[in-house]
Design a protein around this nucleic acid. Structure first.
Lengths: 198, 198, 198, 198
DNA sequence: AATGCTCCAGCTGAGC
DNA sequence: GCTCAGCTGGAGCATT
């Protein structure tokens, strides 16, 4: 201290040095992504995976909730587009609208899901068994579309996990389903007017 | 032409005027979003809905594919987190790895889904019937978690659509499931060092 | 109210409509910029001019101050690069270092610039006369580099203004000095390692 | 290779690791900036200095040219705001509009500056002498506004450089001119309508 | 012409 | 309640 000049210079040089390092790492990241793309992976999906991989528990939960809300909204807007609702969205829909209104809940008090109830109908050992069965089924050549559990059954997800874990570890040497199929963009022509609001 | 000075001024003023208009509309958008938030809707989800609403067919398809690829990658990374695979991801997994290699595919020629086959097992009239049944079930008080169709059955999505269309049009006056439940963030404290990579 | 479904749809459609308008105006802006670029103007500079044009008085003042501070810092870092300091930076440098020195600096009352003093040594009529002289000199063919006033003389800026106003309004039909001279970028080759910090 | 699963996981983990490092460095940068701000420096100006510090020669030249063009445009739009033109802008204005048109240039062929001529009227030793004189003058207490050279004289910039280098190295312990003076923002009230374009 | 990168501004969330 | 900084999304720009 005592010399503002030297301080200023020091700050600028320290930051410049750090920025150089940051730029170097950014370049490395870009290189790795390009390498992955050269192997046939989708760069954009990789980026998304990294984002999710680095999320902590809270962020992950918030993300899940956000997606569930998107599905709910989408459903109410008629924008489902052939996709069935996910479990989380179903749960949200099942929330009793006003929990303080007794006049309508009287006829079915027992089956009100109360926001969290309906999911865990199976003990963990059943879940684990389903996961293990997924692995075994994968080894025996069963296809992923042949998941034996019906939707909304938590064992369905576990079977999927097991199946994927098993097939992933085999010697599948080139990713067939990892590539984008439609890299085309239809050249959004100028047939439509520049401003439809005119 | 002939007067660069006047031209320049004209260009700048025209653009400034347009920028003013744009800023005004941006303000209007913000106002509407705030209004929606005041009604209990989630601003971020609304934004997402608008984005999807404005997508054209190609963008929508690309988006669906992107999400399916995300699920595939997530599955292979063990990051499914209890969510079962969606239909699109299942289809992707079912693609035969090398469709041009006859020496290995010979043992199972009939059941190769060839990338697009397995989905439309039901004629459109069945789909429509499922949608109508969803509406009827909704009217009769059936809950959304009681969808009678199993997963991967396209009628399941249709039933969901019908159910949502019906319940949406009723007099549900306050959105219970539209709100975010956990607006908290646990204040990621400074107990961890600034750089764990050091 | 009473129908959350309809409300939601209304919000989304209103916002989508506004977004369409906004996108249309953004397209118009782009068109105008391209038109200007086709006339030989620099798109980036045009954008900057529009930004400044739309600034209100406060923003403009803040911007001027920011630039003056940049010059001061630059000077102290030896990064002037052959450019002399601007007036605002000179003023900043002239601020008396410790303003807490005993009761109002009685020992040197006349020459303390006190942050704002030194500029207006000339009455407004002189400034206007200089501006008018700039116009006249421009008409008589004098070049802009032949400004008769020395630096830091406020009449210098006024003469410049007059000169530019005059030459701008003549029939100069093509902008010669408006174009960028070096659109090249030397393709920062990969001779340097990816990370010099390694 | 041969195991797409392992490859994918490797890519994601490598990138996640690099992103962690990058985030750590970004945090460090933020810390240093906060430290500088706590010392009284302006964070935004520091950032700008770092940007310029890290520029290579080409970028620096492009930046200078951009600013000169901004001044030219500003002058032609009457947006000079009391600031005299800088040297680079003067040079640009002096470019002969069309050098291949002989009908108008015939009367004054000798004084055409040909875009680069007028600046270096002084040999380097004079420049150095001016710089040294700036240092000496600074030591003798001369103020920065008392630069003895007139504008557009390259020695003026050199004197400034010398003065700044000298004053910067003295024991000036607290920066008086480094701080922003007007951190206020006048709360752009809603007295004006949301859209003046209506 | 299409793609990817870089920059900027607007929005969101925290902090006083 | 307001200010501010971080950040994500979009637009411009350069390249192949």
């Amino acid at each position: 201290m005592g010399d503002a000049h030297a301080q200023l210079r020091s700050f600028v040089e320290r930051i410049a040095r750090l920025e150089d390092e940051k730029a170097g790492i950014a370049g490395d990241i870009k290189d790795v992504k390009n390498e992955a793309a050269a192997q046939g992976f989708d760069k954009r999906v990789i980026t998304q995976m990294v984002r999710e991989y680095r999320m902590d528990e809270h962020e992950r939960a918030a993300q899940r909730e956000h997606e569930a809300m998107c599905e709910v909204y989408r459903a109410n807007l008629g924008m489902l587009g052939g996709t069935p609702l996910g479990d989380a969205a179903r749960k949200r829909f099942s929330i009793v609208p006003p929990p303080d209104e007794p006049d309508e809940a009287g006829d079915a008090p027992a089956e009100q899901p109360e926001a969290e109830a309906p999911a865990p109908e199976f003990p963990p050992e059943d879940i684990d068994a389903a996961r293990e069965r997924g692995r075994k089924d994968a080894r025996s050549g069963r296809k992923v579309i042949e998941n034996p559990y019906i939707s909304d059954d938590p064992r369905r997800a576990a079977w999927d996990e097991g199946w994927c874990a098993e097939t992933g570890s085999d010697g599948m040497d080139i990713p067939p389903a990892y590539r984008r199929t439609s890299p085309k963009k239809p050249k959004k022509g100028d047939d439509q007017p520049a401003r439809e609001a005119a």
